[in-house]
Simulated assay, not measured.
Amino acid sequence: MDVRGLRALVVLVVVVGCLVVPIPAASAVVADGGGETEQLTLQEEEDEPEADDEGLQLDDADEIHIDIYLYENGSATFVVDYRFPINDENESEEEWQAFRDDLESNPGEYLESEEEDWTDVATDGENATDREMNLSNFTVSVDESSAPRDLGHVEFTFEWSSFSHVELNRIEAGDALSGFTLMGDTTLQVFWPESYSAYDIDPDSDDRGEGSVFWDGDGTEFTDDQPRIVLIENSEATDEPTETEEGPAMPWLAVVGALALLAALAVVGWWLRYRREPDPGVESRSEPPADAGETPQEGPPPELLSNEERVLHLLEQRGGRVKQQEVVSELDWTEAKTSQVVSGLRENGEVEVFRIGRENVLALPTEDGEDSEE
Rank of each mutant, 00 (worst) to 15 (best):
D2G: 14
L6N: 09
L6Q: 08
R7D: 07
A8K: 14
V13L: 14
V14E: 06
V15G: 12
V16F: 05
V21E: 10
I23D: 08
P24Q: 01
V30C: 05
D32R: 03
G35W: 04
T37N: 11
Q39D: 01
E44C: 01
E45T: 05
P49Y: 01
E50A: 09
E50I: 03
E50Q: 06
A51E: 11
D52P: 05
D53T: 14
D53A: 09
E54G: 05
Q57K: 12
Q57D: 11
L58A: 05
E63M: 12
H65D: 09
H65S: 06
I68R: 01
I68K: 04
Y69A: 10
Y69R: 01
L70D: 04
E72Q: 02
S75F: 02
A76F: 01
T77Q: 00
V79R: 03
V80F: 06
S92F: 03
E93R: 10
W96G: 09
N106V: 05
P107I: 09
G108Y: 03
L111R: 08
D120W: 03
V121Y: 00
N127D: 04
E132M: 05
E132N: 09
M133R: 03
A147D: 13
F156Y: 08
N169A: 02
I171Y: 01
G174T: 01
L177E: 02
L182A: 02
G184A: 07
T186V: 14
T187M: 02
S195W: 00
Y199P: 00
Y199G: 04
I201P: 00
D204E: 12
E210N: 14
G217F: 07
D218R: 10
D218M: 13
T220K: 02
D224G: 01
D225A: 09
P227W: 01
P227C: 12
R228S: 15
I229S: 00
I229M: 14
V230K: 07
I232F: 01
I232Q: 02
N234F: 03
T238L: 15
D239S: 15
E240Y: 11
E245T: 09
E246D: 12
P251W: 09
L253R: 14
L253T: 14
V255F: 10
V256A: 11
V256D: 05
A258L: 14
A260P: 06
L261D: 06
L261M: 12
A263S: 13
G269I: 11
G269P: 00
W270M: 07
Y274M: 03
R276A: 06
E277K: 06
P280T: 07
G281R: 07
E287P: 05
P289A: 12
A292I: 09
T295F: 00
T295I: 04
T295C: 04
Q297F: 01
Q297G: 08
G299Y: 05
L304M: 12
L304V: 08
E309Y: 02
L312G: 04
L315P: 07
G320A: 08
R321S: 15
R321N: 08
D332M: 11
Q340V: 07
Q340H: 11
V341S: 07
S343N: 13
G344W: 02
L345A: 05
N348R: 15
E350W: 14
E350R: 15
V353D: 13
V353G: 10
G357Q: 13
G357L: 03
N360P: 10
A363G: 07
L364K: 12
D368A: 15
D368F: 00
G369A: 15
E370V: 11
D371Q: 04
S372T: 13
E373V: 14
E373T: 15
